[in-house]
C-alpha cells in the first residue's frame, strides 16, 4: 500500500492553494510537537483521522492498512522503552532475571505512542492532500534550500519507482506460477530483487531522457494550476486551529 496509489486528485481541499491547505496541517503539527499531554495527542490523532475520512474520502479499511507498518515499528519501540530489567514488579522471570514494566517507562511509552501516532496521521494528511510537486513548491516558498527539496523529491520518486517495478514484476512472476512451491521461494525472491533494481534504474534513465528532451533543468519544478484565494477559505482552518489551541491550554492547565 503506497500513498500514490490511494491519492485522490479530487479530494475536498483540491480547490485551495497549497498555502491555504498548509493552514490545516501546520498548526496541528506544531501543537502535536509541543504538547506533552497524552489526551491532547489522542484527540489530535482522532481528529486527523476523521478529517482524512471526510476530506480524502478514503475507506476505513484502507486507512487502517496505511497504519499497519508504522504502528508495528512504534509498538516495538514503545515496548523496549517500557520494559525494565531487572524489574521491581516483575511479571515473568527468565533465568534469574525479573522482567517487568516500570511506571516511568510506561508513561513515557504512552506519550511516545500517542504523539507519534498523531504525527504520522498528520503526515498522511499532508501526503494525501498535496501532490509531490505542490509540496516541493511549498518548500521552495519557505526558502528551504534547494538541495533538501531535491533530496526529498528524489527519495519519494525513487521509492515510488521501486515499488511500482517490484509490484509489476512480482505480479508477472505470480502469473507464471512462481512462489507456489515452498523450496523455490527464496531464490525466486532474490532474483526478483535483482531484476527490480535493474528495471528501476532503466526506468529512471528513460524518464531522465524524456525530461531532457523537454529541456528540463536541474530543479524539479512544475507550474501548478492557479487557484483563487478568498477570505472565507481561512475561516475553517483558523477556527479548527484556535479550538485545538484552546483544548491544549485546558489540558496543560489541568495537567492531563
Amino acid at each position: 500500500m503506497w500513498i500514490t496509489e490511494i491519492y485522490k486528485h479530487d479530494h475536498r481541499l483540491q480547490q485551495l492553494s497549497p498555502a491555504v491547505r498548509a493552514l490545516y496541517w501546520a498548526p496541528a503539527m506544531v501543537l502535536a510537537l509541543v504538547s506533552s499531554s497524552v489526551y491532547f495527542d489522542w484527540a489530535m490523532f482522532a481528529l486527523v483521522n476523521l478529517s482524512l475520512l471526510g476530506v480524502i474520502r478514503i475507506g476505513l479499511s484502507k486507512l487502517t492498512r496505511l497504519y499497519r507498518i508504522p504502528v508495528a515499528f512504534i509498538l516495538l519501540g514503545c515496548f523496549v522503552i517500557a520494559v525494565e530489567i531487572p524489574a521491581q514488579k516483575a511479571f515473568t522471570t527468565i533465568g534469574q532475571l525479573p522482567i517487568g514494566f516500570s511506571t516511568g517507562g510506561l508513561q513515557l511509552a504512552s506519550l511516545l505512542l500517542s504523539r507519534s501516532l498523531a504525527l504520522i496521521g498528520i503526515l498522511y494528511f499532508i501526503l494525501l492532500t498535496n501532490t509531490i510537486s505542490e509540496l516541493a513548491e511549498l518548500m521552495r516558498k519557505c526558502r528551504i534550500p534547494a538541495l533538501f527539496i531535491d533530496l526529498f523529491v528524489i527519495t519519494f520518486k525513487f521509492i515510488e519507482n521501486l515499488r511500482q517495478t517490484s509490484f509489476e514484476m512480482y505480479r508477472a512472476q505470480r502469473c507464471r506460477l512462481g512462489y507456489s512451491g515452498n523450496g523455490k521461494r527464496i531464490p525466486l525472491f532474490a532474483s526478483l530483487m535483482a531484476a527490480v533494481f535493474q528495471k528501476s534504474m532503466q526506468n529512471a534513465k528513460q524518464l531522465e531522457t524524456a525530461m531532457q528532451a523537454r529541456c528540463a533543468g536541474e530543479n524539479y519544478c512544475f507550474l501548478q494550476e492557479e487557484r483563487q484565494f478568498t477570505l472565507p477559505q481561512l475561516y475553517l482552518p483558523v477556527g479548527l486551529a484556535s479550538l485545538s489551541v484552546a483544548f491544549l491550554l485546558i489540558c496543560c492547565n489541568y495537567g492531563w
Partner: peptide, 21 residues
C-alpha cells in the same frame, strides 16, 4: 512508451512542464 515520458503528478503540470523549463 508514454509511461517513460510522464513525470508530473498531474496532467496540468505535465503539459506545463516543457513550457516552464
Amino acid at each position: 512508451e508514454s509511461d517513460n515520458q510522464l513525470v508530473a503528478p498531474s496532467v496540468y503540470e505535465e503539459v506545463a512542464f516543457g513550457l516552464s523549463n
